[in-house]
Design a protein around this nucleic acid. Structure first.
Lengths: 200, 200
DNA sequence: ATGCCCATCTTAACGCTGTTCAGATGCCAA
DNA sequence: TTGGCATCTGAACAGCGTTAAGATGGGCAT
């Protein structure tokens, strides 16, 4: 009996191994570099093995996307809450964009409807759970006035749009060829403080 | 001699035929339903034929994406300009989201860095040209105060985020299971007028 | 008008992909 | 110990993008 769970047993906890392998591939090569066969290869099993655990490739990728929402939620929950909702909103926006750039593969996967099973009830739950703290900040920021859902949508859209544009290199075009990382670290904080309507 | 250019000549204006076929496939099945071989099939040529005109599949898809930016620009330029920049901004936002939903395949392709050759100089030019009128509205809206680039980025992010969230069915989750089309037609206009900070 | 050149397209092949299915494997419970 | 059954293998299939060698024929120089 080994203390490590690397080569677990006869065949082992293949399910977890495949999820980890898929996540690693996506982190290394991006979502377009993923292939089910390579995930199987890394887990040391035959190409047909994943089918029994996940059905299809979408089944496996859905699990990775669920992990992605969990880690996004963790990143958002990690920002300290102050008594100024606007400050918190800026910090959460920065965390959101930072997560998208730091885990580009995961982030892209999370919003790829063709690669994820949206009918899985855990999917919607994971998304709302990830944004729960963020929705709370929006509610505190508005003081309960106005349409709550609309406000969450508007603020989320703004942050999500910044993340996507930065990820796709569009910010690079507007801001003197700054890389996405330079943009997030140097330009975005000032921008949120001075030009972002939700940052007061 | 035929008046129609359908089966043009010996082999014909294959380049245009392939672009049209690719655009049609994407409109029918979405970007994930595209395949280079099917585009060749529809154009009535062998699988290897596109290579000479576009090099790789990305070459062909880049052309379709350029058409996409042109049509997005046309949609944005089609909104009438009033003397109230906030009104214009709302109308342009509605047009942007409407375009994304009406031409989902094109729109998704336009922001897929793995399917488009970002090094093509026409690509950046097409993107900025499409947003030129929009950037003008932002400038009029701010009265020339503040960082222009930052303002364009912030407003564009907001609109782009709404389009993406609507397209991915996230709005569906926040607004009582409304379909993307219902959302754009019934919910979004009110939302832009009442909860959108750029709509005054 | 004729002949050559060269862009264009075909055919065939390579290696890769996701998925399926019959059969082998070996753990766990009885 | 033995049977049942979840698990995994190995091979196959169709489809994909891309490449290379060869056929095809239109347009240009002569």
């Amino acid at each position: 009996m080994q203390s490590s769970d690397e080569p677990p047993y006869h065949h082992g906890n293949l399910r977890a191994a495949l999820i980890a392998a898929a996540d690693a591939i996506i982190a290394e090569k991006g979502i377009e570099g993923f292939s089910l066969r390579e995930a199987a290869r890394r887990a040391g099993v035959s190409p047909g093995a994943p089918a029994h655990h996940f059905g299809t490739a979408v089944g496996l990728l859905t699990e990775v996307a669920l992990l992605g929402y969990a880690s996004l939620g963790a990143a958002l929950n990690a920002v300290p809450i102050t008594d100024d909702p606007a400050t918190d909103l800026r910090a959460q926006a920065l965390a959101y964009v930072g997560f998208a750039l730091a885990h580009a593969g995961r982030f892209r996967l999370m919003f790829r409807p063709d690669l994820v099973n949206r009918d899985d009830p855990r999917y919607g739950a994971a998304a709302t759970a990830a944004l729960a703290g963020f929705a709370g900040t929006v509610a505190r920021s508005s003081g309960g006035q106005g349409d709550g859902m609309a406000q969450v949508f508007v603020v989320w859209s703004s942050i999500h749009g910044m993340a996507n544009l930065a990820l796709d290199g569009k910010a690079q075009y507007l801001f003197d060829g700054a890389t996405p990382q330079q943009f997030a670290a140097q330009i975005l904080p000032d921008l949120l403080a001075k030009s972002w309507p939700f940052g007061c």
